[in-house]
């Protein structure tokens, strides 16, 4: 016979379970429902009419004159393009730096580490504020170039740390073994180090890509009002058109969840949490 204590514990477990699921999925459900709610009169718990007309409008398949509704396709393509360029620039700076930090005894290493850690230790918003005044002088404020530079800044630090720990994880004796059978340092890098580092470098690129795709604060200061990325379009829609903002929200959420859950095993917990 099962004791009273058992039933008490079981009902507490069940309560925790239901409550957790409600809290976890409530906000996501709200977002999903709003993205398909064509009619939702208060105080109904669910929309009266469900359809994809806002999706069609957002994706430019259907013309719309609703307030706040514009095709998000240009912003979407712009966001993707910015993210791709950001990945290319960030990784071409981060891979050599990460390699150097991992495999060389660099003088003043502590100072360098400090420099590369600072951006994660302090709030970044004041940096964006001052970059705005600097970029205004340089004619980069409100330009795609300016936005890319800010995204590179946000992604680079993570990029450096992830690539450096990737290279660190490759034992030196594997490279030395290649040298001992006649490979010069370039060949050893290309044939041994690079293939072994590939998964980590790919994870790092994906991470930088998603970070750029989701970046809001830096773009808000540097890009507005001329450079509209997907997160900024979401922001400007959220005040006027709930459905529209929700569609963009779902569009941003899906790649983030898919890619991050794919690469999270390769990354330190701290980095995964540092995004957004």
């Amino acid at each position: 016979m099962k004791s009273k204590k058992y039933y008490f514990k079981f009902s507490m477990d069940l309560l925790l379970f239901v409550l957790s699921l409600l809290i976890l999925f409530g906000p996501m459900l709200s977002l999903a429902l709003w993205s398909v709610a064509e009619q939702w009169y208060w105080p109904n718990l669910l929309p009266q009419k469900v359809g994809f007309s806002y999706w069609a409008q957002a994706l430019g398949l259907k013309m719309s004159f609703a307030i706040g509704a514009v095709s998000i396709v240009p912003a979407f393509l712009r966001s993707i393009a910015i993210a791709v360029v950001t990945v290319v620039i960030s990784m071409s700076i981060a891979i050599p730096a990460g390699y150097a930090l991992a495999k060389f005894k660099v003088p003043f290493a502590s100072l360098l580490l400090l420099l590369f850690l600072m951006p994660n230790a302090f709030p970044q918003q004041p940096i964006f504020v001052n970059l705005l005044s600097i970029f205004t002088k340089w004619g980069l404020a409100g330009t795609v170039t300016g936005v890319i530079l800010v995204h590179v800044l946000v992604g680079l630090v993570y990029g450096i740390w992830i690539t450096s720990s990737t290279f660190k994880a490759i034992p030196n004796h594997l490279i030395e073994a290649a040298r001992s059978v006649g490979a010069d340092s370039r060949t050893a890098f290309l044939k041994i180090t690079l293939p072994l580092a590939a998964p980590g470098l790919l994870a790092s690129s994906v991470f930088v890509f998603i970070t750029s795709l989701d970046e809001f604060t830096g773009t808000f200061f540097i890009g507005l009002p001329f450079v509209n990325t997907l997160p900024l379009t979401l922001y400007s829609a959220s005040g006027t058109n709930m459905q529209f903002a929700s569609v963009i929200g779902v569009l941003l959420l899906i790649p983030s969840i898919i890619f991050m859950s794919l690469v999270q095993k390769l990354l330190k917990a701290e980095y995964v949490g540092g995004m957004g």
Binding site: H173, L174, A177, R179, S180, V181, G182, A183
Partner: peptide, 29 residues
């Protein structure tokens, strides 16, 4: 430089390249 010395090396922790088959490990040099 190390690669031009004609010296064969065997390491304590073997240092076999994990992304290559045994055949490719031997064939690399």
């Amino acid at each position: 430089p190390p690669e031009k010395r004609g010296i064969g090396l065997v390491f304590q922790n073997y240092a076999l390249w994990p992304h290559m088959t045994i055949f490719e490990n031997l064939a690399f040099g």
